[in-house]
């Protein structure tokens, strides 16, 4: 195993940041680079860190970037890993947003509500459908999803409040039901 320097970290995470497919696309690159190619981490270490990363409230891949960056390059390593990973998305976002501002008031922008914007809304619906695919009906989760839908749309309760409430309710109910299913 060759040591991984700061330059390697930059290259690996830039590559990860260029991967399509969101988190899973990035995960595939990191697995390939750290586990398969360089054997710097065992599969078990990689999977444990991935599971822990899912708990971190920043996005799992950002947590892994901070983790692997710090592991192989200390604090500078973590900064380099995080920066390299978001660099492609950041550059693209800013340039395309600048184009939007630049085109404001032109006929091109008037076409957006008929083309890209409805498609974007469809992507959000698709994402919600995918996130909800594991939710069976009836279940605690289906109930929480329905309650959040109604609470937000009809009663205009703040999403933040609904999220924290949903988490706490689920923690309490699941603790009871799981105990009933698997008595100690």
């Amino acid at each position: 195993m060759k040591p991984i320097g700061l330059k390697d970290l930059f290259v690996i995470f830039l590559k990860a940041g260029l991967a399509f497919g969101g988190g899973l696309g990035i995960l595939a690159v990191l697995e390939e680079e750290f586990v398969t190619k360089r054997q710097a981490l065992t599969r078990e270490e990689f999977l444990t860190d991935y599971a822990l990363g899912r708990i971190v409230p920043s996005g799992t891949m950002s947590a892994l970037a901070a983790d692997f960056g710090a592991r192989f390059g200390g604090f500078p390593g973590s900064v380099i890993a995080l920066t390299a990973m978001v660099l492609p998305a950041f550059t693209l976002s800013v340039s395309l947003s600048a184009a939007y501002v630049y085109l404001a008031g032109t006929p091109v922008l008037a076409l957006l509500p008929l083309t890209i914007l409805p498609a974007a809304l469809a992507f959000i619906v698709a994402a919600a459908l995918r996130l909800g695919r594991d939710i069976t009906i009836p279940s605690v989760e289906a109930l929480l999803a329905a309650a959040a839908f109604i609470g937000s749309l009809v009663f205009r309760i703040s999403p933040a409040l609904l999220l924290v409430g949903g988490g706490i309710v689920s923690m309490v109910i699941l603790a009871f039901t799981e105990r009933a299913e698997n008595p100690a």
Partner: peptide, 21 residues
């Protein structure tokens, strides 16, 4: 368990938001 509730609530919220958007 907390995370499971969070995910489920998110799904409901995203649907509510797509309706209002």
């Amino acid at each position: 368990r907390f995370t499971r509730g969070l995910t489920a609530t998110s799904v409901g919220l995203i649907f509510a938001s797509t309706v209002s958007i």
